[in-house]
Amino acid sequence: GGAVTRNRFDIFNNVTGVGLASAGHTRWGGALGVGWEYGFTPNWSFGIEYDHLWMGRDNAGFAGVVTPGGFVLTGSGVSQDVDMVTLRLNYRFGGYGAPVAARY
């Protein structure tokens, strides 16, 4: 499958808290997952799912930003593969049996 993330990188001065630079953009990658669900009553179920997102490596450039200490910020790289586990408890509204059909 597909995955999308919105990245935002902010650099702050630790002493003053003033923002020095910011960069951000949207990235696309791949996703693969597996899951299992068990219905323990007619309306309730429990599920677990594992997903891995391949987002690759991202480089954020901050060219020309000078910190108060005189350091020049050039950029940084972030490896952004994500592993997610989701647990869920579901309730299905709408009665005990099959869907209601009109009778004439």
Rank of each mutant, 00 (worst) to 15 (best):
F62C: 04
D58N: 15
R92N: 14
Y104H: 10
D81L: 12
L20R: 10
A31Y: 05
G61I: 12
N90Y: 02
Y91W: 14
G24S: 13
A60I: 06
V72R: 11
H52Q: 11
H25F: 11
G17W: 14
H25A: 10
P42S: 05
V85W: 10
R57K: 10
W44S: 04
T26Q: 05
L87K: 01
Y50M: 10
R27P: 07
V85A: 09
G94D: 01
G17N: 11
G29R: 03
G47K: 00
G95S: 04
H25Q: 12
M55N: 05
W28H: 12
G33F: 00
T26R: 08
G29K: 03
G94I: 01
L32Y: 13
T26F: 04
Y104E: 08
W54A: 13
S76V: 09
Y38K: 05
G24E: 11
Y91S: 08
D81R: 14
G95Q: 02
V78I: 14
W36S: 08
P42C: 06
W28Y: 12
F62I: 02
Y96C: 12
W44Q: 02
G24I: 12
M55Y: 03
A31P: 04
D58M: 11
R57T: 12
V66Y: 09
G35N: 03
L89D: 05
A102N: 05
Q80W: 14
Y38T: 04
L53Y: 10
G64P: 02
G69T: 13
G94L: 03
G77A: 07
G30R: 07
G24H: 12
R57W: 03
G61R: 13
G69K: 09
L53R: 06
V78Q: 14
V100G: 04
T67N: 00
L53C: 06
D83K: 07
G30C: 06
W54Y: 15
N59I: 15
Y96M: 15
L32G: 13
S45G: 08
S22E: 02
A23D: 14
A60C: 04
V66P: 07
E49Y: 02
W28P: 07
T41P: 06
G95D: 02
I48E: 06
R27I: 15
W36E: 02
R92S: 13
V66D: 07
H52M: 10
A23Y: 12
T86A: 05
G77H: 08
M84P: 03
D83Y: 06
T67L: 00
R27L: 15
G97K: 02
G94V: 01
L73Y: 02
P99M: 00
T16K: 13
D83T: 08
A23T: 12
F93P: 08
S79F: 13
L20P: 11
D81G: 15
N59L: 14
D51M: 14
L87C: 05
T16Y: 14
M55T: 01
S79P: 09
A21L: 05
A101E: 03
G61Y: 15
G56K: 09
V85R: 00
P99S: 00
G75F: 09
G97I: 01
P99E: 00
E49D: 07
Y38P: 02
F71N: 14
T41Y: 07
L73A: 01
H25D: 15
G70I: 01
G35K: 03
A31W: 05
V72Y: 08
N90C: 04
D51Y: 08
Q80N: 15
G94Y: 00
Y91D: 04
